[in-house]
Design a protein around this nucleic acid. Sequence first.
DNA 1: CCACGCATTCTCACAAGGCGAGAACCGAAG
DNA 2: CTTCGGTTCTCGCCTTGTGAGAATGCGTGG
Lengths: 264, 264
Amino acid sequence: MGRNDALTGMASVQKAFALLDVVAADERGLTAKEIAAALEMPLPSVYRLLKTLVESRHLVHLKDESRYALGYKLHALDASLHRQIGTPSAVARLVLELHSRGDAAAYYAVHRGDHIVVAHVVDSPTRRRITPMGFGFNDAAHATAFGKILLSGMDATRRRAFLARQGLPAMTSNTIRTRDELELELEKVSAGGIAVEREEFMIGSSCLGAPVRNAAGQIVGSVAVSLDAADFDRRSGRIAVLLRDTADKVGRALRATSVLPQRQ
Amino acid sequence: MGRNDALTGMASVQKAFALLDVVAADERGLTAKEIAAALEMPLPSVYRLLKTLVESRHLVHLKDESRYALGYKLHALDASLHRQIGTPSAVARLVLELHSRGDAAAYYAVHRGDHIVVAHVVDSPTRRRITPMGFGFNDAAHATAFGKILLSGMDATRRRAFLARQGLPAMTSNTIRTRDELELELEKVSAGGIAVEREEFMIGSSCLGAPVRNAAGQIVGSVAVSLDAADFDRRSGRIAVLLRDTADKVGRALRATSVLPQRQ
DNA sequence: CCACGCATTCTCACAAGGCGAGAACCGAAG
DNA sequence: CTTCGGTTCTCGCCTTGTGAGAATGCGTGG
């Protein structure tokens, strides 16, 4: 009957994914015995799972080292994920241009379902993105510039639901912690057409963001850049101009790309 | 009791991954009903699976459209796969350099378990890689330049096992189809220190590859470029020199990077 | 050449848990 | 208020996942 810990879903499937996670956590892959220890499962059960996962190419068996490591199917799935999120190449080009013209890590974020997600990032060794903020990042919208932009474009009901779900976790001492403060901030964003985030997500890094609009004027995306604190003070003025320009171009590119994203 | 079609592994886990595949195949994600139809499963069972997969973030539920699409966990897994395959950044830089200096799509391939795998690719809109030959590609070693290099470095036993597993499928009319021809070709590769592939994988594209060796002199990787047929005739001479140079540098970079790959 | 160790697979009886028909629930649209 | 999808729940049935233990097979060292 099972305990009561896993109230949800199918036990064997959960175990399969737990196994993937355990294997993913190690640089070199794990032996069956190590996996069994990590999952606290008997060996034969682990081997059964391994066999299934190797067969489906989600794992590979490195026979020489008798280790199991991640398989190539996972890359194919990620490629499909990219296709589904679907940043048009014209938009990707504009973000790249933003990166080089602004000499800063550049981001493009959109709504997807009820998340605010980073859909494209361009950075470089000298202008690194904020580490967790890669493709697929979908946390802490209240503590990011692109998040503020996209929140400011949501209607009140939807925003309330969003914030109820995600809360306002404090990432740094500068993070906005209350609904009221956030609403005030979002009004400023709407008024100025630019979102500012000053070390609210990570100490040492600040961001600026601008809204991307569809033909109906709804905010469907956001372009943003991150700067280190010193840069921010010096360059935010010029960057803001560049961002607005890029955001407009991205909006035009989206409108040109047949199907325009919906949702405020 | 189950039919007899799935001799291997755990049915419910296979179904979960089948569901992922079905969802991945569609650009915009699918409704529960569409998934049920595609998998020929009753709706409640599909919902059970969906719930499990959404909970583990391998899927997301796009509530507004009542569609299910791929989740962000898949990107994290792919990132782990990249970490496990682990092309050092110094090597990645050298492949990039090969791409720009050679003005051609550039590849880096290695052994992984008993596969020959593309570990890194650099291309550009004007110099596209051969489409299926992206990161993680591990087919048709006999019909690729980097495959020939890595095959030529395997000992006879291992190579025989490899070819027995993979066969010599004909990709084009130029593909080598027999063991004997292949062995002859591999001797040429060993002698010349360069592998040539002339429209053996895809009509219109030809490749050149060179071996990357570890401190012991074993072939542990291969750098390669692809060219269209016309380019190949004109530039193969210069490219070969460039490849040898790059391969040497990659070998040195690997030796500098603490842990050196083994396996011939 | 044999013995041992380790990885992997197999066997088998048990019962956990996956299954599916049907009904209930829920929110949106009319 | 009713209708209509989409989604979740209920509840027996019985498939199939489970795990101890043994068997197999490969490689290594004695």
